[in-house]
Design a protein around this nucleic acid. Structure first.
Lengths: 150, 150
DNA sequence: TATTGTTATACTCTATAACTATA
DNA sequence: TATAGTTATAGAGTATAACAATA
């Protein structure tokens, strides 16, 4: 028999676990540690990894609403970390790009994130960490495939 | 080489994955599906699984602040799902208990949660699901061991 | 007429500090 | 003096709808 983990005495499901974990992690990912709040950090990471991304794409990929995307981009733009430019093929769209300053900030933030993550995952083997990332990635893919709205 | 998952083209780390997943799951865990919002549901689950729990315990275990605990318990109590009674050994404390109505609601909510969870995890094998729960549980334990505040 | 992004607004959630009562 | 819980309040985050520009 395994030792019963403190955090999940009677298994309350992945949904609750995720919520609990996210809350716990979020309160460690402070502004002063990261240099950014978590949402803007995630947006910067997304536009680096998906060149040509539009605001609508950020909305669906990160499960944000249009309004939040606007506010986050306003903030990033006033800090000179990203810019919006019109898509010449469809002038309704904005294509969001990372600036050199934004890339530097993102690199710095990722260093901080990795250090925190190392602390949180310190009880997992390298293989367990890979497995965790892989499984979470799969779940995210399923979630992104769920039709938006019920 | 593995197929590159859509959701994590350049691995942005577990922290971002958790935040993204939580957001996506949270918008599916609607009030009308669950009968409760997620936080009150988690509190009900916690007091069922930890008889004799106090408000301070809910605070640290679920990463809530004292104020949120009060508001959630007010809500649960007015719906007759839980009650607070003074701890006879230390009359400053409240011991929070599940009522029969609360237990019924919790059972119903867990059915709904399991059904949603089945959809989200449908691409994972039974073994992968167990692994995911186990790894998330470990991470939660590490997180609970981190000293509160930096 | 539909879509992309913006603005305005309200609602929820979270964080903080001051207060009451018990220890 | 310190702790458990409550109250009050402000701030951040989130959701909704109305609007402008473009398709």
């Amino acid at each position: 028999m395994d030792v019963k983990p403190v955090g999940a005495p009677a298994d309350r499901g992945v949904v609750s676990l995720l919520a609990q974990l996210n809350k716990g992690v979020h309160r460690l990912m402070t502004d002063e540690l990261l240099g950014l709040r978590l949402k803007p950090y995630m947006v910067l990471g997304y536009i680096r990894d998906h060149p040509g991304a539009t605001q609508a794409e950020l909305e669906s990929a990160l499960f944000l609403d249009a309004n939040s995307v606007v506010l986050i981009l306003n903030e990033l733009e006033s800090a000179r970390y990203s810019i919006r430019r019109r898509d010449p093929n469809d002038r309704r769209r904005h294509i969001v790009e990372l600036t050199p300053d934004g890339r530097r900030m993102l690199d710095r933030a990722e260093k901080a994130r990795e250090s925190l993550e190392g602390e949180i995952l310190k009880d997992l083997s390298a293989e367990d960490r890979r497995t965790l990332r892989r499984l979470l990635g799969h779940v995210l893919d399923s979630l992104l495939a769920v039709p938006p709205r019920g």
